[in-house]
């Protein structure tokens, strides 16, 4: 046992310095497609057609990308005409109504307890949530904790397209949480059903079942994006900044 103590004590600190500093280590995020200028509308339409999920929208001299539909298939990064790509991770967005948004700070500025519910997610998004409590991201340092019981939870983190057979469990978990409570959809299948919608067996979005406050897009969203969502909820971070301000990270 002493050996383990030494091993632990002599391992260097790995934890990211985000949010105080940007995380610039390679490989922390897959990045996302961003607004791209095109020479003409035809090229824009052609570029939009490469996307299998309709995440790219053509306009007169540009294309825009909706990250909450992008599944990171990278089809739009191949060929002659490609989307610009940005390796950032501040992807979370407030989608709840403004009254709730204005009220959110007071009780929740410092610390949050989180209950995770898996409503049919792939393993990968849960694995990214799991990384948050592990050495590299260690969200405990920011006052965020996973709790096993919804009775202690401030935030419900939902992953997956809300399958019919998990809907009741989701509703019961939500009902068991004390007020005030917040709901966060993690990953594109929780936001729009992604490749699993429309479906005979899945609802296709969390917002269709319980009121949603924050969405964290990505397939799966990297741990830093989920952390950004939590910080956004506590009012310690702002929403996704405009694209022309590059943030750390290598493409």
């Amino acid at each position: 046992m002493f050996g383990w103590f030494v091993k632990g004590a002599t391992s260097r600190v790995r934890t990211t310095r985000y949010p105080a500093h940007d995380e610039t280590a390679p490989g922390v995020t897959p990045g996302r497609p961003v607004e791209t200028t095109c020479d003409n509308e035809l090229l824009a339409i052609g570029l939009a057609a490469t996307c299998p999920t309709g995440a790219i929208k053509p306009a007169a001299f540009k294309t825009t990308a909706d990250i909450s539909r992008c599944v990171h298939c990278m089809a739009c990064t191949r060929g002659e005409n490609t989307m610009s790509w940005q390796a950032d991770y501040r992807w979370a967005k407030w989608v709840g109504d403004n009254a709730r948004r204005a009220a959110r700070h007071r009780p929740f500025r410092k610390s949050l307890h989180i209950r995770v519910v898996d409503t049919g997610s792939c393993d990968a998004v849960l694995s990214e949530i799991k990384q948050l409590v592990k050495p590299y991201y260690n969200m405990h340092r920011l006052g965020f904790f996973i709790t096993p019981t919804p009775r202690h939870a401030d935030v419900l983190m939902v992953a997956g397209p809300v399958t019919s057979q998990m809907r009741l469990a989701l509703l019961k978990t939500y009902a068991a949480m004390p007020e005030p409570k917040w709901v966060m959809a993690v990953g594109n299948c929780a936001i729009s059903g992604c490749v699993f919608a429309p479906s005979f067996i899945a609802n296709g979005s969390v917002a269709g079942v319980i009121p949603l406050d924050v969405q964290v897009p990505g397939c799966p969203p990297p741990p830093l994006a989920i952390l950004h969502g939590l910080l956004l909820l506590t009012g310690r971070e702002a929403e996704m900044p405009p694209v022309d301000q590059p943030l750390g990270g290598t493409p």
Binding site: R115, D118, S121, D123, K130, V133, P148, P150, A169
Partner: peptide
């Protein structure tokens, strides 16, 4: 089915 922590359902 809502399993412990961040485990699957």
């Amino acid at each position: 089915p809502v399993y412990a922590d961040y485990y699957e359902s």
